[in-house]
Amino acid sequence: MSAPRVLVLAKAPAPGRVKTRLCPPCTPEQAARIAAAALADTLDTVTTAAAGSRVLVVDGDYPAPPGWATLTQRGDSLGDRLANAFADTRTTGTPAVLIGMDTPQLAVDHLDAARRLLGTAGGPDAVLGPATDGGWWTLGLRDPGHATVLRTIPTSTATTGRRTLAALRRRGLRVHLMPRLCDVDTAADARAVATLCPPDSRFARAVAAELPLPAPVAR
């Protein structure tokens, strides 16, 4: 079996199109700079981790790092875009691990663990990383064809992760749960995740520079 392919599903960080739940307190431009930092840190981590190949699956125009492939997202719903990312990069005998751009605290160890699990004979058929908001931050599949289940699962809900796990198990897959991580959606999320990143990371610096401090509580 080939080493897993890593897919990063991302949206080009243009003002008004990314991290809109940060507005307010951010302006659209500030939110876009925070999103750009999250994406850049994520790409750096994936570049450093071992992988058979790396693909940036992007909505919009954003340059992939050297050595990466680029694929345009395809589909109307997020579920379709996720499923199509797996389908459009599928190679027989090659597992795939998909992550988004909303967990800049992602570490190489997370990806190495997924790679080892999917590449080990007798290991799980899938790895799923639950997110604290009820979704998931990563899905890895020994056979990417199983990603078709994502087309019918509502996304961005408090039950998305649970429904995804149930759908995979209904297909008879053995699923290993990865550590739970926090996605960056709100200002509170951004501040919490920044504390989990190295202080000199792009994301930590962007949050410190771009995210306005909460207003003092009146007494």
Rank of each mutant, 00 (worst) to 15 (best):
S2Y: 10
R5N: 02
R5Q: 15
V6F: 14
V6T: 13
A10C: 08
P15F: 02
P15A: 01
G16L: 02
V18N: 01
T20M: 11
C23M: 07
P24T: 00
T27W: 00
A31F: 09
A37R: 11
D44P: 07
D44Y: 09
T45A: 14
G52L: 08
G52A: 04
V55R: 06
P63M: 13
A64E: 13
Q73K: 13
R74A: 12
L78R: 02
L78A: 02
L82G: 00
L82Q: 02
A83V: 05
T89W: 10
L98F: 03
G100M: 11
G100W: 12
M101I: 01
D102R: 13
T103Y: 09
T103D: 09
T103Q: 13
P104Q: 12
L106F: 07
A107Q: 15
D109M: 08
D112L: 14
A113P: 00
A113R: 15
L117S: 05
T120P: 04
D125M: 05
A126E: 10
P130M: 01
A131V: 01
G134Y: 02
G135Q: 08
L141N: 04
L141Y: 07
V149M: 05
R151Q: 09
I153N: 06
P154D: 14
T155V: 11
S156W: 15
T157V: 05
A158N: 13
G161W: 14
T164P: 05
T164H: 12
L168A: 08
R169C: 07
R171D: 14
L173F: 14
R174V: 15
V175R: 14
H176P: 07
L177R: 15
L177K: 13
R180N: 10
C182N: 12
T186F: 04
A188P: 04
R191L: 03
R191V: 05
A192Q: 14
A194Y: 13
L196Y: 10
P198S: 06
R202H: 15
L211F: 04
P212A: 12
A215D: 09
A215Y: 04
A218S: 09
A218E: 10
